[in-house]
């Protein structure tokens, strides 16, 4: 009990301290001299896309994105590794009529939205992430409603899809390197196409991965025969 009080007190003090420090620091900060937006604007014509955020994400700072996809992959791999063995998996939830209808109607719409977002990405807000997550959302809905037994499991096909986006990204990266260019330095002429290609592949993979994170989450069945290793 005493520890609990202490915990709350200290956490409170620390949070307030951080808050106050941030508050004050923000108040006295000066405007920086370097202006990246200006640089972005300058470089936009060479980026291959007309939407600045997409340009930053997939061209200027594409390396961040590459690693980010790797992060996503890491989560997906852990999900695959810790996923229940098939016999542990529970049957899909009982279908609900209203949800069913809703999902059935909305899924094609969501796919369309995703396609739009992907296509829009190069010129205006939208892009692979948004599109991928919309697709993933659709899949989650389908899964929840039990209408379609979608599953991202150990099968090779699933795994191929999971790594598809990253593979394309990597192939492009390797290609640029083999061409004697810096990593992910697209030839100006191909930049737009390459970015779109990467985005498309990423959309698919992101969708599948996000869904797999949902789908592969372990059931909460008491550990009868968990897929453990090492201590088995």
């Amino acid at each position: 009990m005493r520890r609990r009080v202490a915990r709350h007190a200290v956490a409170g003090v620390a949070s307030v301290a951080v808050g106050i420090a941030l508050w004050q620091a923000i108040g006295v900060r000066s405007i920086p001299t370097v202006s990246l937006p200006a640089l972005v604007r300058e470089a936009m014509p060479a980026s291959g896309v007309s939407h600045d955020i997409t340009a930053v994400l997939l061209n200027f700072r594409s390396y961040d994105t590459l690693l980010e996809i790797a992060v996503l992959l890491a989560a997906a791999v852990v999900a695959l590794a810790l996923r229940d063995t098939p016999r542990e998996r529970m049957p899909a939830s009982q279908p609900y009529l209203i949800l069913d209808t809703f999902v059935w109607r909305i899924t094609p719409l969501l796919v369309l939205v995703a396609a739009y977002l992907l296509w829009a990405g190069s010129t205006r807000p939208g892009g692979a992430f948004q599109a991928g997550s919309v697709l993933a959302g659709a899949a989650v809905l389908l899964r929840l409603s039990g209408l379609a037994v979608l599953s991202v499991d150990d099968r090779l096909a699933s795994r191929v899809v999971v790594v598809f986006g990253l593979s394309v990204f990597l192939l492009v990266a390797a290609g640029t390197l083999l061409a004697g260019q810096p990593l992910l330095a697209y030839p100006p002429a191909w930049a737009g196409a390459l970015i779109l290609m990467i985005e498309a592949a990423l959309t698919l993979s992101i969708a599948v991965v996000l869904f797999s994170l949902f789908d592969n989450a372990p059931q909460s069945r008491p550990a009868a025969a968990p897929a453990q290793r090492g201590e088995a």
Binding site: V71, A75, V78, L213, A217, P218, Q219, A223, P226
Partner: peptide, 15 residues
């Protein structure tokens, strides 16, 4: 990603 990973771990841990 981190949240999903945490949930996966948490659910396994809970199991």
């Amino acid at each position: 990603s981190a949240t999903a990973l945490a949930i996966i771990l948490l659910r396994r841990w809970f199991a």
